[in-house]
Computed example of a mutant assay.
Amino acid sequence: MANTKSAQKMVRKLEKRTMVNGARRSRMRTFVRKVEDAITAGDAEAAQSAFRNAQPEIMRAAQKGILHKNTASRKVSRLASRVKAIA
């Protein structure tokens, strides 16, 4: 347990930040899952639409520090190539 006032405050801040980051990560994964489900189903139109919605979510996660920017770019690139393959 934190001993000083400032350390206690940092623990409180960390708990809040962890909740926010978890929500952002979950939201991003949901958008990615929708694209992957559409790809698996072979629905090119739905996959394209879901990808257009997922791309800004992935990049926003990178901007907020949930993902590294190169990781986000790689995810977008791989999803784009998979969407293009079924189109």
Rank of each mutant, 00 (worst) to 15 (best):
R33Q: 10
G42E: 03
P56N: 10
S73T: 10
D43Q: 09
M59L: 01
I86M: 06
R60N: 04
S6E: 01
R78A: 04
A85Q: 00
A2R: 03
S26E: 10
V32N: 02
A85N: 02
A7K: 02
E57W: 11
G22T: 07
A44P: 08
A61N: 02
A2E: 05
K5F: 11
A54E: 00
S26Y: 13
V76P: 12
A85G: 01
I66T: 05
V83E: 00
G65V: 00
S49K: 03
I58V: 12
S77H: 12
A47N: 06
T30G: 09
A50Q: 12
V11H: 04
T71L: 13
D37Q: 13
K69E: 03
F51M: 15
V76S: 09
T18R: 10
R29T: 13
V32G: 02
A80D: 15
D43K: 09
A7N: 01
R78G: 05
A72Y: 06
S81Y: 06
Q63L: 06
K69T: 06
S81N: 04
N53D: 11
E57P: 09
V11M: 08
Q48E: 08
G42D: 03
D37C: 11
K64M: 09
S26G: 12
K34L: 11
A85S: 02
R27Y: 15
A2G: 04
Q48V: 08
N3H: 07
A7W: 01
R25L: 06
A46E: 00
A61K: 03
V35R: 00
R27G: 15
T71R: 12
T4F: 10
M19H: 11
D37I: 12
S77E: 11
K9W: 05
L79V: 04
R24Y: 07
Q63H: 06
S49G: 01
M28A: 10
F31C: 12
